[in-house]
Amino acid sequence: MTYPEATHAPLAPQDTEITGPEFKRRNPVGVWLGLPLITLGIYHFVWYYKIHREMAALHRKPDSPVAGPMLVLLFLSWTLVAPFVSYYRTGERIRQAQRHAGLPESCNPALGTLLMLLWGAGVLYYQVELNKIAESRGQSR
């Protein structure tokens, strides 16, 4: 049995400027209320996974959590403590991402975690902080 030869994508030209991984700018109100209401709450898990994937790509660290924080929300939300620990650590990761992007560390993990108790407004706060990183990298929606 013979197999077809693998095709390889051409490499980028050497003179092309590579700006790093994309950090998507999202509408904070849409992330906080709009899409979660339309999808019956499922979008919150999608958003949580996506922001961790973007932060892991920005840090380029193999031990950066991507799916773990979302799985904590999905499977351990009944404990009431685990989600708040996850939200707090997310705020710390956002602050590290801001530092890595050369921005002042304006994200306050304690404030973001407390805002989660107020109709989930921590999502709004965290997305505003993440949008600062996307804007500093010159990326838009």
Score class of each variant (00 low, 15 high):
Lys61Phe: 00
Leu80Met: 12
Val72Trp: 15
Ala56Pro: 06
Arg95Cys: 08
Thr113Asp: 02
Gln98Thr: 05
Arg93Cys: 01
Leu58Gly: 05
Trp119Arg: 00
Leu76Thr: 05
Met55His: 03
His100Glu: 13
Ala101Arg: 05
His100Arg: 11
Leu58Met: 11
Glu105Phe: 04
Leu73Lys: 14
His52Gly: 04
Leu103Asp: 03
Pro62Met: 06
Gly102Lys: 09
His52Asp: 06
Leu117Phe: 13
Asn108Arg: 02
Gly120Leu: 01
His100Pro: 00
Ala97Gly: 15
His59Ile: 01
Pro83Thr: 07
Leu117Tyr: 08
Val72Ala: 15
Ala57Glu: 13
Gln98Ser: 01
Ser77Thr: 13
Arg53Lys: 15
Leu80Thr: 15
Gly91Trp: 07
Ile94Asp: 04
Leu73Ala: 09
Leu111Ala: 13
Thr79Val: 07
Thr79Glu: 08
Glu92Leu: 10
Arg99Met: 02
Val85Gln: 08
Leu74Pro: 05
Met70Lys: 05
Pro62Cys: 04
Gly120Asp: 02
Leu58Ala: 10
Pro65Tyr: 08
Leu80Val: 15
Leu71Gln: 09
Gln98Phe: 02
Tyr87Asp: 11
Pro109Ala: 02
Val72Tyr: 13
Leu103Pro: 03
Ala56Arg: 12
Ser77Ile: 08
Asp63Lys: 09
Arg60Ser: 15
Ser86Asn: 14
Phe75Leu: 15
Leu118Arg: 01
Ala82Thr: 11
Pro83Asp: 04
Met70Ala: 14
Ser106Val: 11
Trp119Met: 09
Ser77His: 14
Val85Lys: 06
Arg89Asp: 13
Leu71Val: 10
Thr90Pro: 00
Val85Met: 12
Leu73Trp: 14
Pro65Ser: 09
Phe84Ser: 07
Asp63Gly: 08
Trp119Cys: 11
Gly68Ser: 14
Leu58Lys: 02
Val66His: 02
Pro109Ser: 06
Val72Gln: 08
Trp78Leu: 13
Met116Ala: 01
Gly68Pro: 03
Thr79Leu: 10
Pro104Lys: 04
Phe75His: 09
Ala57His: 04
Met70Val: 11
Phe84Trp: 14
Pro104Arg: 04
Phe84Gly: 09
Val85Asn: 05
Pro65Gly: 08
Pro69Asn: 14
